[in-house]
Structure formats: C-alpha cells, structure tokens
C-alpha cells in the first residue's frame, strides 16, 4: 500500500475481473437506485423501501440454502412482499405503514427462523446482510444489468406521469390519471431495485443507497431530471469509492458506500448553496431582498404624526 502510487491504486485492481464486476455492478445499481430513490424521497415513502429490502431476506436465505442464485430468491420474495403489502392496504382500516410494518417484520422473522435451522456460516450471513460487491458473479452482473435497464426503461416511458402523480396526486386523479396503478408500479420497481441493490450493500443497508443520494440531490436540484441525475452520480461516486476502499483495505465495501453517502448528505445539508442550513441562514437577508415579490412590496407613504422614523430626533 505505501509504495503504491495513487494512479496505481486506481488502475491496478482493474486487472482483477472480480473487481471490475464489482465496479460495474455497483455503478448500475447506484444509477437505478438514484432514479427510483428520487421518487421515493419526493413521495416520502422511504419506510416502504426499507420494508421491501427487509422482506427479501427469506428469499435470499432460501436461495442460499438450496444453492440457487441469491438475486432470483430476492426477486421472488421482493415481488411477493410488494404484492401482499398492496393487497393489505386495499382494506381502508389497514394504513400503509401498518401493512408495511406487519409484512416486513414477518418476512424477516421467516428468514431468521429458516436460518436458525441451517448451518450457514457467519461469512455468508454477513454477505447477505451487509453486502459484498466484490463477490458478485458474472450471472449477478448480467441479472443486475437486465433488471436495471428494465426499471430505467419503465421510469423513462412513464416519467411525466410519475412526476405528476408525485407532485399533485389529487389533481392527477381528478384528471383521470390512474394514480393507484402508478403507485403499485412504483412499488414493483422499488422491489426490483432493492433486489439488484442488496448484492452491493446488503439487505440491511439497501435503503441507504435508495434514499441517501436522492436526499442529498434534493438539497441542490430545483428540477426533477437534474435531481435524479445528481442522485445517480452521487451514488456511483460513493459506490466506486467504497469498492476501491474495500478492495485495498479489506473493510466492508457495502458499509463504506453507505458511510460515504451519508457524509455527503450531511455536508450538503450544512453547505448546499441554496438549501443548506448554514448557507441559507447566512444568506437569508440578501435572499429576502432578491426575492421580494411584487405584491409584497410596500413602503410607508403616509403615517400619523405620532409615528416617527426610528432615528428621527
């Protein structure tokens, strides 16, 4: 490590095919998660994404035990959980969050019970829970690419409908837009994203890849497309950094990706040019001036004699 140049640290691993697979896998996942995460953040349904992530756990465990591809197990479990949650909320007495809470804990418990009767190693368990992009097989990368392209294609085709349903669901419904169907579709797309993302950062941390870069991007972007693009870019940057750090130092790549994303979020929360807490606070006086609204403009043109200007003698 000490003798290695920075360029060497960046280029040398590229001759390792497992490393290249990890880079591709993490990049694709980060792009898809950034786009879907944008809608999740704007609709405030982060809890739902988290629940979906935990719901794929039993599927992954079963796939592991029977020697099937983990992503396929996750796919089956994720889509089933999404369907059950959607069905449960059809009963008005069951609120969204209630259904979500019931299903994802049950699914996770199912995974734990199955696991307790198996001889899974702690290394395997760690991979499932916390991810290990460096262990991605070629099949994983192909599956990730296929699902990723499908998700992005669906979002691109229905982009403005998703935007409208997220911005003003009431107005959209009044115009006849099938908002419920779009919500269900977004749920399914979220499930697919979680499935491809869990390999990179693990079941427990998937939600971070979905919402943290999007939440960061929201602090910068005033338009949706730039927000989604920035979220994707931030995710890719954190993903690449995590994979490199994991490769060179042996720390968990998944955990590192999440921590880098989170650091970026807090830095932006403080310092983002217009919506950062510090900067916005400092600039408040000027901005109030610049954004004075025509109908809010006022000056005193007449006052009773008792009312004097502050510095009048």
């Amino acid at each position: 490590m000490h003798s290695m140049s920075i360029t060497g640290a960046l280029t040398d691993p590229l001759s390792n095919s497992a490393f290249v697979r990890a880079l591709v896998d993490v990049s694709v996942v980060a792009v898809v998660a950034g786009v879907i995460g944008t809608f999740i953040v704007l609709r405030g349904t982060g809890f739902l994404g988290d629940a979906l992530a935990h719901s794929i756990f039993p599927g992954v465990v079963v796939a592991f035990l029977i020697g099937a591809n983990l992503l396929l197990g996750a796919l089956v479990a994720g889509l089933s959980a999404a369907t059950v949650m959607a069905l449960l909320t059809a009963n008005q007495r069951v609120r969204d969050n209630t259904a979500i809470g019931v299903i994802f804990t049950a699914a996770f418990a199912l995974g734990v019970v199955i696991l307790s009767r198996s001889d899974i190693t702690s290394g395997n368990l760690e991979e499932i829970l916390f991810g290990d992009p460096l262990s991605a097989h070629a099949t994983d990368v192909v599956l990730t690419l296929t699902i990723g392209v499908a998700v992005l294609g669906a979002v691109a085709a229905l982009w403005r409908l998703f935007v409208m349903a997220a911005f003003d669901p009431n107005g959209a419904r009044a115009m006849g837009l099938p908002v419920l169907a779009l919500d269900l579709l977004l749920l399914a797309l979220t499930a697919l994203t979680v499935v491809v993302a869990f390999k990179a950062v693990g079941d427990i941390l998937v939600i971070s890849l979905l919402i943290t870069p999007a939440a960061t991007a929201r602090l910068f972007a005033d338009r949706l497309l730039p927000m989604a693009a920035l979220a994707s870019a931030l995710g890719v940057a954190a993903g690449l950094a995590g994979v490199y750090l994991g490769y060179h130092t042996g720390v968990s790549a998944g955990g590192t990706i999440v921590l880098i994303s989170t650091a970026a979020f807090f830095a932006s929360w403080l310092f983002a040019p217009r919506h950062g807490i510090l900067v916005a606070g400092l600039a408040r006086r000027d901005r109030a001036l610049l954004r004075a609204r025509p109908e809010a403009e006022a000056e005193i043109i007449l006052a009773s004699p008792e009312i004097r200007a502050p510095h009048e003698a």
């Binding site: 704007l42 403005r160 409908l161 935007v163 409208m164 997220a166 911005f167 003003d168 009431n170 107005g171 959209a172 009044a174 115009m175 006849g176 837009l177 929201r218 972007a221 005033d222 338009r223 949706l224 730039p226 927000m227």
Partner: peptide, 29 residues
C-alpha cells in the same frame, strides 16, 4: 373534461418542478 384546482395546503411547493411543467400537466389528459 374536469379540471381541479387544489387547496394550497394539498400541494408540496418544494417539489422540483417549474411553473411551465405544472401548466403542461394540464395537457397530458
């Protein structure tokens, strides 16, 4: 054929869309 103008409180005003985007939504149906 039915347009609906919601109450102020029902809209997320920080949503990243432009005024033109919002008006264009009326054309979708």
């Amino acid at each position: 054929h039915v347009a609906y103008v919601p109450q102020r409180e029902d809209v997320d005003w920080s949503f990243p869309v432009s005024v033109r985007d919002v008006v264009m939504m009326g054309r979708y149906p």
